[in-house]
Amino acid sequence: MRRMILSLCLAALAWTPATAGPWPREEGRGFAALAWRGGAQAAGAYTSFYLDYGLGPRLTLGLDAGRARDGGGKAILFIQRAGTAGRFRQSWQLGLGARNRAAVLTPGLSLGLGFGDARRSGWLTADAVAPIGADGATDLKLDLTAGLSHPDGRKSILQLQSGRMGDDLPFAKLEASVALPLGRRTSLTLGAFRGLGDNDERGVAIGLWQRF
């Protein structure tokens, strides 16, 4: 049972980039994120790399890649188109690549709401993806995120990660992190996560954000 839970959580980490969310990247601008997540179980360590670049007013091109210590991993190239839905921002995403050396198609939908003023602002997002394997098997992943931007440039983020792989039981995990500015375009990210319900996984996350 413990090994099954670990494999589910490892899959969840493999699905979780520093997503663009429903807001498109500005044309000609880009964002890259490198992160490592690990816990008490050495096999659960995972390194991820995320990159996106604004192609136009509504289009963003990106790469979502990662590799686990046990050799599993993914590399998915995606295109995202953003729009509006009343007060909310929305985007549709379609990715194509490989996960654990098997082809995968990843349609996704994001919804977001920004709030705040000139001193302090925040955002709420819901990001859903449904990876489809070559055999037609479909997984589900839903991340709910709340973020707050502070006057000194820090960002506080709380995220609920949940999903279901095939016929396995659903899983959920809570991760809290902070992004600390190292310069005008670079931030250090520090966080901690733990499983909810029967999932007893817990660990830390460290990474770098770079805007260009």
Rank of each mutant, 00 (worst) to 15 (best):
S162F: 10
A176H: 12
A176I: 09
Q161G: 00
H150S: 05
L160G: 00
D167W: 10
T145L: 14
P170K: 06
D152R: 06
H150M: 13
E175V: 12
S156Y: 03
L144P: 09
G153H: 09
S149F: 03
G166P: 05
G166M: 10
R154A: 02
L140W: 03
G166V: 10
T138I: 05
D143R: 15
G163F: 06
F171E: 15
P170R: 06
G163L: 07
Q159S: 15
L148E: 02
S156Q: 05
G153L: 05
T138S: 03
F171A: 12
D167R: 15
A146V: 08
S156P: 02
A176N: 10
M165N: 14
M165Q: 15
L160C: 03
K155L: 11
F171V: 12
L142K: 14
P170F: 09
L169D: 14
T138V: 04
T138W: 01
F171M: 07
L140K: 03
A146C: 08
G163C: 04
D152K: 03
L158V: 14
D143F: 11
G147F: 01
K173D: 04
T138G: 00
Q159T: 15
F171T: 12
L169P: 07
M165C: 08
Q159N: 10
D143S: 13
D139A: 13
L148S: 04
D152M: 04
L174Y: 02
K173S: 09
L140V: 03
L174C: 01
G147E: 03
G153N: 06
R154V: 00
A172W: 03
D152G: 05
L142Q: 15
A146D: 04
G153V: 07
S149M: 02
G166I: 10
P170M: 08
S156L: 06
D143I: 06
L142P: 09
A172M: 04
L158M: 13
L144I: 09
L140T: 02
A172L: 02
K173N: 12
S156T: 11
H150R: 05
D143A: 13
R164Q: 08
P170E: 05
A176K: 09
R154T: 06
S149R: 12
T138A: 07
A176Q: 12
L144A: 12
S149D: 05
G147C: 00
Q161W: 01
L148W: 04
Q161V: 01
Q161H: 02
G163Y: 05
S149P: 02
K155Q: 15
M165Y: 12
G147Y: 00
K155M: 13
L174R: 00
D168F: 13
G147W: 01
P170H: 04
R164D: 01
G153C: 08
A176E: 07
L174N: 01
P151A: 04
L158R: 11
G163K: 11
L142D: 10
K155R: 15
Q159R: 15
S162K: 07
L148N: 02
L140F: 04
G153Y: 08
L158C: 09
I157C: 11
L169T: 11
K141G: 13
H150V: 05
L144G: 10
L142S: 13
D152W: 08
G147T: 00
S149K: 10
D139L: 11
R164W: 02
L160R: 02
L140S: 03
R154C: 01
R164M: 01
D168P: 08
S149I: 00
Q159E: 11
E175D: 08
D168I: 08
